[in-house]
């Protein structure tokens, strides 16, 4: 077992971020959130509380939603990270991004990247069927503007579209 010291740049991590391989030298204390924002300049992922309490920093790691502020980069060596930038961009938006626009599911937008990453994972998990279940399983994403009603509308719309697509297949 090899120890690495705590110094900045002490450890090399290799990650795939939005499909692109990245190799970086970091300190063991560097979080995935800080690596994304400060080193890769992917500032779509937001820092709200830095404590796991708000969900603004939600990204997908190997397809699962997690709070990137509580993830040490070094522990995620070899993993695949998807951020809001990787879901879609103007001209080619992800259906969830389109639904958030269509349903006016934000005001200031600060929580939105986390909400959308979380909602994409929620659909993949397949555990929410009702509005009450969407609300419960999206509770890890706070919205200080209180856009919750429209957020649930957006998620429900994409969920419904997926369900009717399945039925048609």
């Amino acid at each position: 077992m090899v120890y690495v010291s705590g110094a900045p740049g002490a450890v090399t991590v290799s990650l795939t971020v939005n499909g692109k391989p990245q190799t970086l030298s970091v300190a063991p204390s560097t979080t995935v959130l800080d690596l994304l924002r400060e080193r890769l300049h992917l500032t779509g992922t937001k820092k709200g509380c830095d404590q796991g309490q708000c969900g603004a920093c939600t990204v997908l790691i190997d397809g699962r939603r997690v709070n990137s502020c509580l993830q040490l980069a070094v522990m995620n060596d070899g993993r695949e990270i998807t951020t809001i930038e990787g879901l879609g961009a103007p001209g080619g938006l992800h259906p969830m991004q389109e639904a958030f626009v269509a349903h006016d599911a934000f005001q200031c937008g600060y929580c939105t990247p986390g909400q959308i990453c979380s909602a994409v994972a929620l659909l993949k998990e397949g555990r929410a069927r009702t509005r009450a279940e969407i609300r419960e399983l999206m509770s890890g994403n706070l919205c200080r503007c209180g856009a919750y009603t429209n957020i649930v509308d957006a998620v429900e719309a994409v969920m419904g579209a997926g369900a009717s697509q399945e039925a048609a297949e």
């Binding site: 077992m1 010291s5 705590g6 063991p28 204390s29 522990m75």
Partner: peptide, 19 residues
């Protein structure tokens, strides 16, 4: 956050010995 050194354990025995 205070600086710390880091190691990834490959086996249970290795982890226990290290801590």
């Amino acid at each position: 956050m205070m600086n710390f050194s880091y190691a990834r354990a490959e086996s249970v025995g290795e982890a226990i010995a290290a801590v």
